[in-house]
Design a protein around this nucleic acid. Structure first.
Length: 114
DNA sequence: AGGATGACGGGAG
DNA sequence: ACTCCCGCCATCC
């Protein structure tokens, strides 16, 4: 298993995402000091049990929700994001329209809008 | 040891 | 914008 410190840094990076904002797996990994470990971030989330963790703010680099469109997780995440005012359409988040300048706040949290 | 797997990323067509 | 394909990393047969 990946060492605990790495998992802790990843969890901290996720908890650092402000409500109403989102970040990609790869981005979270970099912020945790683990460039190239996007898949490790996914693993940590998969094993996470903390209900207080804002896991729903983590998306794929293209803005799509990582769960299959027909899954529970997909619905759950969509609902949680919308509850924070995030614009989710067709399983995808529109940054430019739903999130106020992510670029300046978190170091360029996500992909190319639109 | 070798191949398969996945809540990923990025480039190519 | 969408699909395919391949690179990556850690884990698990």
């Amino acid at each position: 298993m990946a060492d605990k410190s790495s998992a802790d840094r990843i969890l901290a990076a996720i908890r650092a995402i402000p409500p109403g904002q989102v970040a990609g797996y790869g981005h979270v990994a970099r912020r945790a000091g683990l460039p190239g470990r996007a898949r490790l971030v996914a693993r940590v989330l998969r094993e996470n049990a903390d209900p207080r963790l804002p896991w729903h703010r983590v998306l794929r680099s293209d803005g799509r929700i990582a769960f299959p469109p027909d899954s529970e997780g997909f619905e759950e995440q969509t609902q949680r994001l919308r509850a924070e005012g995030v614009d989710v359409r067709q399983g995808r988040v529109r940054i430019a329209e739903s999130v106020p300048d992510l670029d300046g706040n978190l170091d360029a949290a996500l992909w190319k809008p639109r």
